[in-house]
């Protein structure tokens, strides 16, 4: 029937065409030749940082500052190397076009920090070491930092996984079954908003080990937002999806697992992100007060020795650690919610 043919001519993008369009939209249009201000930005800024560093470091012991010099030299070398590679490699060029400005800004910020701290000494010294001091701490104490990160990762993942698993079950039950909603919702509304960290005293008394209580607290912190958002997502499933599914012969299990849960997925992910934020907070607090390992513990331990370089080193690791986990969750969301691509952005 020719009606079909006619309608297929409508410029409706297929998914493949669509992703292509999107990537072009996000990345600035690709030029064949990178402007000098782009590829020179990082080497130039690094050179400036090096000069500032030489000026700021002249009144500091060389051992403390040497590694930062090496770091800047490496960055300088790599940036020149990549600027060379991009001449022959378009993907690298595209990547550089996107990343160079932000990396240059980051290095500038490092210099600014160094100028204010070790250079001009505007900030009280032991509390605000410059980037060379922090880098030095990172390197000298790397074994303990690595061990702490490992412990934090283990604690975070066990608590988060436990919390999410329980929350998905309770959330689906509260969202779907009226009796579960009647009895569960008040509990959720009353107990849920208590910050998980407020349970610390109780957790320390009740649980057999600090480790155990920390996992429980993180799970509790995650449980509330994930349950809340899952329940609201499930109960807000568009009624007509359920009606259609029923007339397709759907069983109750199909309605829950194949209609309500997928429909609630965007909401569930909001809960997962909120829960992740809450779990970071709870992790650090739990490590500070009970568990004698992990990054949270490391920060207060280093502070106890007045080694502020190490405090900042731990903060740098935390930033990298938490944002990596956040990125992983974003990737998972992009995979699961691929059907929303182009519909909702957050």
């Amino acid at each position: 029937m020719n009606t079909t043919v006619q309608e297929l001519k409508e410029p409706v993008p297929t998914p493949a065409a669509n992703t292509k369009m999107r990537s072009v939209n996000i990345v600035v249009p690709v030029t064949t030749r990178l402007p000098a201000k782009i590829w020179l930005a990082v080497p130039l800024v690094t050179a400036i940082a090096f000069v500032i560093h030489l000026w700021a470091a002249k009144n500091q012991p060389a051992v403390e500052t040497n590694s930062y010099s090496v770091f800047l030299e490496i960055v300088f070398g790599i940036s020149l190397l990549i600027a060379g590679v991009q001449l022959f490699c378009p993907p690298v060029r595209r990547w550089m076009q996107h990343m160079c400005p932000i990396m240059a800004a980051a290095i500038l910020l490092l210099s600014l920090w160094e100028a204010i701290t070790s250079g001009l000494r505007w900030l009280p010294m032991p509390y605000f070491p410059g980037p060379p001091g922090v880098l030095q701490s990172l390197i000298t104490d790397r074994a303990r930092l690595f061990d702490s990160t490992w412990h934090s990762l283990f604690l975070l993942l066990s608590g988060y996984a436990l919390g999410v698993a329980v929350a998905l079950v309770t959330g689906v039950c509260i969202g779907w079954f009226a009796p579960a909603r009647y009895w569960g919702m008040p509990l959720l509304k009353v107990v849920g908003p208590i910050p998980a960290t407020a349970w610390v005293p109780l957790a320390m008394v009740v649980s057999p080990s600090a480790m155990f209580s920390a996992v429980g607290l993180i799970a509790l912190a995650v449980w509330f937002p994930v349950t809340m958002l899952t329940a609201s997502g499930i109960s807000n499933t568009k009624a007509s999806y359920l009606d259609v599914a029923r007339t397709l012969g759907a069983s109750p299990a199909y309605l829950i697992f194949r209609v309500a849960i997928p429909a609630a997925m965007p909401n569930i992910f909001i809960g997962l992100f909120m829960g992740l934020g809450a779990s970071f907070l709870t992790l650090v607090v739990a490590e500070t007060v009970g568990v004698n390992s992990g990054l949270g513990w490391y920060v207060s331990w280093a502070q106890g020795w007045a080694e502020y370089g190490k405090v900042y080193a731990a903060l740098v690791i935390m930033a990298a650690f938490f944002s990596t986990i956040m990125t992983v969750l974003f990737k998972v969301r992009d995979r699961v919610l691929v059907w929303q691509k182009g519909v909702i952005k957050w």
Binding site: T4, E7, T14, V338
Partner: peptide, 15 residues
Amino acid sequence: VGLETFENAYPHHLS
């Protein structure tokens, strides 16, 4: 219904 070429499209891509 004449939709063979759209089998892997998601609904929000359809007219």
